[in-house]
Amino acid sequence: SKDTIRINGIDIDVKDLHEEWKRLVEEALKRGDEELAIELLERALKE
């Protein structure tokens, strides 16, 4: 798994994120759902 995830052309540092969150965000991006990916990231970062 990578340490960054690219959303809207912005590389976001996710190395401190739990693997499960990372996977969910990557799944959302694979489906092209950037809005969901951002929402998941925000939730993950609050934890």
Rank of each mutant, 00 (worst) to 15 (best):
I38P: 00
I7Q: 02
D16Y: 14
H18E: 12
E27Y: 05
K22A: 05
E35R: 15
D33N: 12
K15A: 12
E20Y: 13
H18N: 14
I10S: 06
L24N: 03
E27K: 05
R6W: 08
E27H: 06
L41A: 04
I38M: 15
R31A: 15
L40Y: 09
I38G: 08
L41H: 02
V14K: 02
I10A: 07
D11Q: 05
K2R: 10
I12C: 03
L17V: 09
R23L: 10
K22N: 03
N8Q: 08
E35T: 14
W21L: 11
H18T: 15
V25S: 00
K15R: 14
K22D: 01
V14C: 01
G32Q: 05
L24A: 11
A37G: 03
I10G: 03
E42N: 13
E26L: 15
K22Q: 07
L36S: 07
L24K: 11
L40A: 02
L24M: 10
G9L: 03
D3L: 03
L24C: 05
I38D: 03
I38A: 10
L36D: 04
G32C: 03
R6V: 13
D3V: 06
I10H: 09
W21S: 06
K30M: 12
E27F: 05
D16V: 07
R23H: 11
E34M: 12
K46P: 03
L29T: 03
K46E: 13
H18Q: 11
A44P: 02
E34K: 09
D33Q: 09
L17S: 01
L29E: 00
A44R: 01
E20L: 09
D3K: 03
E26H: 15
D33V: 02
L24E: 07
I5N: 02
D3S: 04
E27I: 07
I7H: 03
L17G: 01
E47R: 00
I38T: 09
G32I: 01
A28R: 00
K22S: 04
R43P: 01
I10P: 01
D13P: 06
R23E: 09
D3R: 01
L29D: 00
A28V: 04
E42Y: 07
S1C: 04
K2M: 14
L36I: 05
I12P: 00
I7G: 01
L29K: 02
A37R: 00
E42A: 08
R6C: 05
R31H: 12
I5V: 09
K30I: 12
E47Y: 07
S1M: 11
V25D: 00
L36P: 00
E47K: 02
A28Q: 01
R6L: 09
T4V: 13
E26R: 15
I38R: 07
E26C: 08
I7V: 12
K46Q: 14
L24W: 06
E42C: 05
V25L: 14
S1L: 14
K2Y: 14
E27M: 09
I12S: 01
E34N: 12
G9V: 02
L36A: 12
D16M: 12
D11Y: 07
N8I: 01
D16S: 11
R43Y: 10
R23T: 12
L29Q: 02
K22R: 15
E26Q: 15
K2Q: 15
I10Q: 11
A28I: 04
K22E: 02
A37K: 00
E26M: 15
L41V: 08
S1K: 10
N8Y: 03
S1P: 12
V14A: 04
K30T: 12
K46Y: 09
H18F: 07
T4N: 05
E47A: 09
R43H: 13
L41Y: 09
R23G: 08
H18R: 13
E39N: 10
E47H: 07
I7L: 09
E39Q: 14
L40G: 00
K22C: 03
I10T: 08
G9Y: 03
W21M: 09
E34I: 13
V14G: 03
V14M: 09
G9K: 02
L29C: 05
D3Q: 05
